[in-house]
Write a protein that binds this DNA or RNA. Structure first.
Lengths: 259, 259
DNA sequence: TTCTTAATATGGATG
DNA sequence: CATCCATTTTAAGAA
């Protein structure tokens, strides 16, 4: 849990002992090649490299959420080699599963460290508010979609997929409901359309409703043109208990937020 | 470009000056909350935090490609506060654009450092083998799709979108071709179907072909059921010149690989 | 393993 | 801005 020498020849010797146990952080000037599902060449630039003990490799630029190049875990051994002639440090990794090669050439190391993370302190987590939770709420409160709607089945399987909710409306029509936690897209409307067509092919009349937190006009007009319904249910109506600060919450207010 | 003190009270004072210029790396025991498009709580655990100068925040577990929690750039100012009472360090960030709050509470800091990255050394990159390149190859070698096929137009615009390739087959039928560089999905088949229906609506008969590196059975059966064609073209047939090492390439062999 | 689908998807191009 | 679309998407769950 400390700095490593910046000298490449020493790094090449020391790093192997850390790769299996620690998270390694390396910063410096490098160029690199990733070749696999795509071939990507990076010009010489300053970047931060993170290597985790499971073999995940993340090469980050100074900005941006995603790594600029990376390789997932379960590759072979990562090899570092120092080249005396031009004083470069090479990282090589090959992942047979996906036939991906990753090469990084360092021309300068400006920072090197390792972090030993205690096995027993890997806390889990919990999420609230994904699509499953959305559907859960709709099952509990089908009237949010339409008055007197009765849910009959969830994840009803038909030939070409699963229908999120299968229901019956106040006039005893059967209804296929496709639920999207995000803004609806045309693709979602097509999908619903295909489901309804399937029932038509079976000689059954089934209504279709697309439920989403927001449905753009273009999508609504497609639905209307094909005799389908759209119902937008704002996030707040589904998860009214989730509080959010309207601006940056200062530390002393955290307790309120947690409630 | 060096270590920072691990003492929380000092960190709270020092960090602000680094957040706008440097990449900050922090490791220790924390729990955290992200609340925005979803609400996610993490139990106490040991994690590595990366904060970039554009405000991107990445909280990483000891393993895994993706951060376990994160926030994208363009949020407000990130605030660190030391709480004397229980000796914790709090990170708070709020991103108005998406109404996302991110809180991390540190109980222990095991590693703290900053990396100053030179602005002028941010190298760009280049990729070969994306979908555009795939289509390029198909335009050059339409016979890979079907003998005697003639490409007429690329990115042909119709009411509901763009058709990757528009062509004419050996019997002078017009053909709409949808290309996917990856495995085809049902959604891709729906999309193609929609294009064909558009032409039917115009009173035109147009064949539809879905081209992908791989087409699962279910997708093929949907295509067949709707009089559409599927053509899977393995990656190697499209990019035969891209060499890959069959196993880990040792440094001294790199020159061969680069050719 | 293969396939399917949600995701805080991300990121780029376009209108 | 919103929308559309490709992505080395990733990752989890089911068949």
């Amino acid at each position: 849990m400390d700095l490593l020498p910046k000298k490449m020849s020493e790094l090449a010797v020391i790093l192997p002992s850390h790769l299996e146990k620690d998270t390694v952080v390396l910063a410096g000037i490098c160029d690199s090649i990733f070749d696999g599902r795509i071939k990507s060449d990076l010009e010489k630039g300053e970047r931060v490299l993170l290597i985790k003990k499971d073999g995940s490799i993340l090469l980050h630029n100074a900005t941006g959420t995603r790594p600029v190049q990376w390789q997932r875990a379960k590759a072979g051994k990562i090899v570092f080699t120092h080249n005396d002639e031009d004083n470069t440090l090479l990282m090589e990794s090959y992942r047979p599963k996906t036939d991906e090669s990753f090469f990084i050439t360092y021309y300068e190391i400006n920072f090197a460290a390792f972090i030993r993370m205690k096995e027993e302190l890997s806390g889990g987590g919990e999420t609230i508010g994904d699509e499953k939770d959305f559907v859960d709420q709709l099952v509990l409160h089908p009237d949010l979609i339409e008055p007197e709607l009765k849910i009959i089945e969830r994840e009803k399987e038909i030939d070409f997929g699963f229908i999120d909710l299968y229901a019956q409306d106040s006039s005893h029509n059967f209804v296929a409901i496709e639920v999207k936690k995000q803004n609806a897209t045309l693709t979602d409307a097509y999908q619903l359309h295909r489901y309804i067509e399937f029932f038509q092919g079976q000689g059954e009349h089934v209504r279709g409703i697309l439920v989403a937190t927001h449905i753009p006009k273009k999508v609504l007009s497609y639905l209307k043109a094909h005799n389908l319904d759209g119902k937008s249910i704002p996030w707040q109506e589904i998860f009214p208990t989730v509080k959010r600060p309207s601006k940056l919450v200062r530390t002393r207010q955290l307790d309120n937020f947690w409630s």
